[in-house]
Design a binder for these strands. Structure first.
Lengths: 333, 333
DNA sequence: CTGAAAGCGCTTACAG
DNA sequence: CTGAAAGCGCTTACAG
């Protein structure tokens, strides 16, 4: 019932070949013929079936996106950047989150074999790097967003985590805070190691090297950040600042400081990482190292699309700059 | 290069028809033949091309999802519910956000004509109801999530907005707050009218009818909520509570109360609506009327999938219950 | 139980 | 500049 290329051809008195040619604006069509065909297309409201085009051309003009979760606080920004870019290029975006065990991972890889999409954008779910590498080796174009420090063999977009950590340190040092407590993320993440290295080195260079008791591995949750800082406070405060490797952890830290009857930033200054939407709305607003999440999404999508339309991809990763956003959780100048 | 059904047929010494039959588990295949074919499929790692299957069957086993924005604080939960449900059913999810003007709306509708998906889930972007209604009339199955009170002619999933408003009122009344300030959302939204009706009636029934000065139309932003409450406070406080129609507005209200040197909840109690992830993390944590966003997403997806697999859809909308989550921004019992 | 053939709606050499 | 025909990888009557 929907109108097909055959209907258009019949109505315009030409062959399907010709219709296809004006559809794809191949040059070798008589101007008046083309115009007539275009009129019919408009009149009939014809739109080529994407499935048929894909089958005939061997490509789907669709990109896949795999994410570990859609509810993480910064995921919306990444997604928005990706969708905007993919849509503007006239591609479709197929969304996957294989977060229900091995079963769903398998289902996902079978979608790949089904050639449902031409390329893949991914925020890496845990333990999927091997699978992704295998897909890439089999010829699927893949671009990673935030490599988690795994440095895969395919292109990725990340942020200057080391610089970000260093900037957080310099900001706290400038405020005269010499005894920070660092709440890292899981140590297996490269971004965590980078953030910490930047922070630690900056403190060392300033003549205030971090002692072993000043660094605690956390898990990126608000609850754990709160628990750790709460315990440290109860055991007797020996720090004048907290640097958390993500904003949620920083929010937990602030809650613990307040719960202990202390003030942010006067007694304990707090710096987070990410600049999630909530960061500007906490009390006090959270000073944080901003990652340009939306731009990271746009950039990754742009790389993948370029690859799909024939361009070669940059051999080296794309590293976008972080920036410190100073707010009320650290002392003003 | 990828393995096709013809490869499998050849290797198994049968026709493509037979392979297709075991693939789709039609009964009329000899058991031993079927087993042999299955072995070959496994050995070759064959997966049917989704595009080809779709073309032959006239359906894509993909559902589309249209949203106004991916960065709204509750969108992640809705999306997660949708994706989980759609994935579990073995369908693909194609994501659209036509938020770049009429141009992108047109691009979206053309995707529909291209039969890229079999059904559509939508959180309605502004001014798209007519377009959606037209698509539905042309035969596209559509399910709306949160009807915004438009009561469209196709199925939708929403929450008990009126009850939610009433529950907020009863909660504040129980705390002895008789002079609330109401910060509504845009009046054109049906959910806003419902929330307000429930709240207003409950106050009236309790003998404390709302005066005209106690209701202000806001726009669901934190900034406007803060501005309105700030002005009211500066003009002389004549309210002991704020009911905001969304959590972001409530967060703004709390900020304004604190900025005025007053306390939440002692001087001004605050109740929000939605229960976004941030609500539990504010200082004090925000009392709010919870909408089961993830379940709304799951439910809508389930309805659409049922429809696509042949079941009839319920004529009446599905209305999920809201629930009041009491936290620190209102006085305890 | 099994297969040859037509068809889904396009694109693309190949001829003219 | 234009078209007939083959092909993309499946499914599905239709025969046997």
């Amino acid at each position: 019932m929907p109108v097909t290329i055959a209907d258009v051809a019949r109505a315009a008195g030409v062959s399907k070949t010709t219709v296809s040619r004006v559809l794809n604006t191949r040059a070798e069509v008589d101007r008046s013929t083309a115009e007539r065909v275009r009129d019919v297309i408009d009149r009939l409201g014809y739109v080529p079936s994407s499935g048929a085009v894909g089958l005939a051309r061997g490509q789907s003009r669709t990109v896949g996106m795999l994410v570990p979760s859609l509810t993480w606080p910064w995921m919306g920004e990444v997604m928005q950047g990706v969708v905007d870019t993919v849509e503007a290029a006239g591609f479709g975006l197929l969304l996957f989150t294989c977060n229900r065990g091995a079963d769903s991972v398998e289902r996902f890889t079978s979608q790949v074999s089904a050639r449902a999409f031409d390329g893949l954008l991914v925020v890496e779910p845990e333990n999927t790097l091997d699978m992704l590498t295998a897909l890439h080796r089999k010829g699927l174009p893949v671009v990673l967003i935030d490599d988690r420090g795994h440095h895969p063999e395919f292109p990725y977009v990340t942020a200057t985590n080391r610089d970000g950590g260093a900037e957080a340190a310099r900001h706290l040092l400038a405020a005269g805070r010499h005894r920070p407590l660092v709440l890292t993320g899981p140590a297996r993440f490269g971004c965590v190691r980078d953030r910490h290295a930047g922070f630690r080195d900056a403190y060392a260079e300033a003549g205030h090297p971090l002692g072993p008791g000043q660094v605690v591995e956390s898990d990126f949750t608000e609850a754990h950040g709160r628990a750790v800082v709460g315990e440290r406070l109860a055991a007797g405060r020996e720090f004048d600042a907290v640097f958390a490797h993500n904003d949620l952890g920083a929010v937990g830290a602030m809650a613990a400081v307040h719960a202990a009857g202390l003030r942010v930033p006067q007694d304990v200054a707090v710096v987070g990482f990410d600049d999630i939407p909530m960061a500007a709305l906490t009390r006090p607003p959270l000073t944080t190292v901003r990652q340009p999440m939306r731009r990271m999404g746009e950039t990754a999508a742009g790389l993948l699309l370029a690859r799909l339309t024939g361009e070669a991809l940059p051999a080296s990763p794309v590293v976008l700059p972080t920036s410190l956003v100073a707010r009320g959780s650290t002392p003003g100048p």
